[in-house]
């Protein structure tokens, strides 16, 4: 049985989904059901007493693994504070570290992310850091106790697909932890390709939330991720042929 194990929890589905940007939170239960996902992200915000809103937690089916993120954090200290708050809320000890100090492109800050991961992993959190696909950053995250690494396929919310493919490939090859492609995935075929390459899972939000029919798109992504995983496990056939008789390099061995 092919399972993804993170922080001691076995997951059947390799699709992680977000809860942001839906036209109505009431869509979430059906999206979860159709996607098959078992891990769902949420964010933590100050309550705005002037414009009360509904509670996203009311729409998340029980049994889901919650993955609070630290969005809004601009440095390690803020991320650590948010993580501790999320844990205090009694939603388990998983945390997606997201430190963004760049408001123009929304790219993650590797140095601050490593610092936050080290502290939180030391406190017993299951830390899933969101990063640019930088090998050296990923290696340091392994060193400081991350449970997985989550490199971006393209900038957040851009729906541009696997623009960082070559770098993702290197991370998948070199990092022993699960590599979860987070951000940028626009189409089910992008998610499928990431899984074929050997990604452990995909995390996506915008691509489902912004579809005309989110439930249907969620189902499509669930299937694409499962298909890509199966293809990876099956072992892709060779893409190049190396036999050449014109100038054999090993002919001398037969003499």
């Amino acid at each position: 049985m092919d399972q993804l194990v993170i922080g001691g929890r076995s997951l059947q589905s390799r699709l992680f989904i977000g809860t942001g940007k839906y036209s109505a939170d009431t869509l979430i239960p059906e999206v979860v059901k159709k996607s098959g996902s078992e891990v769902i992200t949420v964010a933590l915000r100050r309550i705005d007493f002037n414009s009360p809103t509904g509670n996203v937690m009311d729409h998340i089916p029980s049994g889901m693994q919650l993955l609070p993120n630290t969005s809004g954090a601009r440095n390690a200290q803020e991320a650590i504070r948010i993580a501790r708050l999320a844990k205090a809320a009694g939603c388990g000890n998983w945390i997606k570290i997201e430190v963004i100090s760049d408001n123009k492109y929304l790219l993650p800050d590797g140095y601050e992310t490593i610092k936050a991961t080290e502290v939180l992993a030391g406190e017993g959190f299951v830390v899933l850091p969101y990063i640019s696909p930088d090998l050296m950053v990923a290696k340091q995250l392994v060193e400081v106790g991350a449970a997985a690494v989550m490199p971006l396929g393209a900038p957040i919310g851009s729906n541009r697909g696997l623009k960082t493919k070559e770098l993702l490939r290197i991370l998948i090859e070199e990092i022993a932890l699960p590599v979860i492609v987070d951000a940028g995935i626009g189409k089910p075929s992008d998610a499928c390709e990431a899984m074929e390459m050997g990604a452990a899972a995909c995390l996506l939000n915008t691509a489902i939330a912004s579809a005309n029919q989110p439930e249907l798109m969620a189902e499509a992504f669930g299937m694409a991720v499962a298909a890509g995983r199966k293809a990876y496990l099956a072992g892709l056939g060779r893409s190049e042929k190396y036999a050449s008789s014109s100038s054999p390099l090993t002919g001398f061995l037969h003499n």
Binding site: Y242, A243, S244, P248, L249, T250
Partner: peptide, 11 residues
């Protein structure tokens, strides 16, 4: 498959 391996090793 030595010849194949040799071609790829060379490349």
């Amino acid at each position: 498959y030595l010849e194949w391996m040799a071609q790829k090793a060379n490349q």
